[in-house]
Amino acid sequence: MIRILLVDDHAVVRMGLKMLLNTNPEMEVVGEASEGNEGIQKALELLPNVVVMDLSMPHGKDGLSATSELKKLMPEVNILILTMHDDEEYLFRAIQAGASGCILKSAPHSELLAAITDVAKGNAYLHPSATKRLMEEYLGSMKNGHAPDSFNLLSDREKEVLTLIAKGFSNKEIAEQLVISVKTVETHKGNLMEKLQMKTRPELVEFALKKGLLGYGL
């Protein structure tokens, strides 16, 4: 069962989403919130697997700020940004804030259900037009002789974990330093390795050195 928290400032939207999601036997809406601060508190109380977060909430904390803060408090939670903005800037900002994906409010119901299922499994999800634009930007960057810097996709916590890995600390030692569980450290490590497209600790150490995370670089 995928436990879902809905965070949207429109009660009618939340009601519609709740009715839709609860018809799926593998999903359950366990809570609702009308703005970011309330969403963070509800997430800490209800421990959902997935938070469906509205991007624009004018009253209270907005979706991007709430996503960034919630990922620091609950690194294991998967956040799917719900937005009406089919805009590249919002997409990159959502990813940098720690969201697992973005989906348009205008998307078909079947796409929303598929997106929630994907992010609940720890996968990333981007709506088709966003994926197309990302590929176009990547290919354009490659033609210009450089690739996008994947370091910018890492959350602040993932950068902390990367730095400690590069300094030679074990997962247990990292957990003790950051006051988190070993499992959470492993989750961060898996996420940053996926984002950086790396498979070994030596690769991470070399990358951290190049980025100057140890105070000196290669």
Rank of each mutant, 00 (worst) to 15 (best):
I2D: 00
R3Y: 04
I4A: 01
L5A: 02
D8S: 04
D9E: 07
D9Y: 09
A11Y: 06
V13Y: 03
R14A: 02
R14H: 03
T23Q: 14
T23I: 05
P25M: 03
E26N: 10
G31K: 00
S34N: 10
E35I: 01
Q41V: 06
A43F: 02
L47G: 00
L55M: 14
L55F: 11
S56A: 07
M57H: 05
H59E: 15
H59M: 11
K61Q: 15
A66W: 05
L70Y: 08
L70D: 00
K72A: 08
L73G: 09
I79S: 02
L82P: 07
T83R: 10
H85G: 03
D87P: 02
E89L: 10
E89P: 01
L91S: 01
F92A: 05
Q96S: 13
Q96V: 12
G98Q: 13
A99H: 10
A107V: 11
P108G: 11
H109M: 09
S110Q: 15
L112Q: 03
D118E: 15
G122M: 04
G122W: 01
T131N: 14
K132R: 15
R133W: 11
R133I: 12
L134N: 12
L139I: 13
G140D: 04
M142L: 15
N144P: 00
N144F: 01
G145W: 06
G145F: 04
H146S: 12
F151D: 05
N152K: 08
N152S: 09
N152D: 09
R157Q: 14
E158G: 07
E158F: 08
E158S: 09
K159D: 07
E160S: 15
E160Q: 15
E160V: 06
L162Y: 05
T163G: 11
K167V: 00
S170H: 06
E176H: 09
V179F: 10
K183D: 11
V185A: 01
E186H: 05
T187W: 08
E194Y: 06
E194V: 04
T200Y: 05
R201F: 09
V205L: 02
V205R: 02
V205I: 15
E206K: 14
G212I: 03
L213K: 02
L214T: 10
G217Q: 12
G217I: 11
